[in-house]
Design a protein around this nucleic acid. Sequence first.
DNA 1: CCCATGACTAACCAGTGTTAAGTTGATGAA
DNA 2: TTCATCAACTTAACACTGGTTAGTCATGGG
Lengths: 205, 205
Amino acid sequence: MGIAERKEKEKKEMRSLILDTAMRLFLEKGFEKVTLRGIAEEIEYSPATIYLYFKDKNDILFALHTEGFERFYRHQQTIRTIKDPWKRLRKHAQAYMSFALENPEYYDLMFIMRGPGEKIKADREWGAGMRSYDFLKQNIQDCMEAGYLPREDLDVAAFAIWSFTHGMASLIIRQRCGMIPKEAIPAVVNAAVDFMIEARKKQKQ
Amino acid sequence: MGIAERKEKEKKEMRSLILDTAMRLFLEKGFEKVTLRGIAEEIEYSPATIYLYFKDKNDILFALHTEGFERFYRHQQTIRTIKDPWKRLRKHAQAYMSFALENPEYYDLMFIMRGPGEKIKADREWGAGMRSYDFLKQNIQDCMEAGYLPREDLDVAAFAIWSFTHGMASLIIRQRCGMIPKEAIPAVVNAAVDFMIEARKKQKQ
DNA sequence: CCCATGACTAACCAGTGTTAAGTTGATGAA
DNA sequence: TTCATCAACTTAACACTGGTTAGTCATGGG
């Protein structure tokens, strides 16, 4: 089975070569500026070759989309081990931001870009996103139960916190923060998390 | 001067007809999906006619961009009359959100879309945005001075609050809130503002 | 009657997604 | 060793779309 096996591997490699290149072009050119011909040229194959590995252009964006949520979820899981719910929530926000800032292309695709086909809503695409959202909600609930946060509407709290981190991430990624010098951004983000979340901590009674 | 005057008026009307139509198409089709041919068809003129009123496509986006910041600033000014800084800050957030939700096309263009020509940064484009940002900062400072907020870093506080509202606005506009039923959105937004801002209020000592 | 102005027609040109048809080189049976 | 097969890959084209412009025409003020 050596040969079939090797071919299988090569096929996978080609797929991820295309995927990686597409993602890199996203980063560089942004937008729908990613073109099949562009990808093809970059990997030094003909445009038609790509169709041997992907159904069409959307299929590529789709694959990147799911891949993004996969990475995102894995990235979040690093905070699982933190015992104290409050510390965990804070790290949660930090992890969110570090994912966004270290993977701006993925973040953009997942949370900012007008979707490749807006119809895919109830699909397992959303499922992957939901998994992460539920993880956040669980974390907030733990904080409420531990007395760190007043027992308010869980959905509202989750939406508020998510909005806050997403707001920072998308302002930075879409370059609306001209007033903040680039090198100061991580510090400002951290301070903002303090301002918004840390300062909201209720002393355990 | 009757004739020249009338022609002047007609020219202005045509300009804003094009602008309005372009903006409406933005709303409907979104994206860079706005095409000169599309606008032309909509206003029932030939594509070439548009070039009599605008240099090129970017010129149109540009005009919409400035128009957007103009409206935005005017919208914000309605809260000027509120005396109590804390009430004013809360209304500020609400006004931000109502602008965003009532003018999603403008909001998208101004704060989310990858800019039509990213280079225009230090320009008066940014100036118009800055004016609104400074207004927010002033409001926050008033709250600090009135003892409603602890005297922390003003820039951090402004960035945090802006991020929060922008996060809500952009999640909603770019339809990442599948978990919230459409009709519940205004209420959730309000509750989130309470959660994030209202609850952060420090009693005057 | 002249011609400036506003508008239109028609086309150009550069892309873009996509596909049909051909080429080639390795694979594996005869 | 030979050679049909087949998958990978390419070429070339199709069918569009979109921004843009050159050339043309009608109308109405002077």
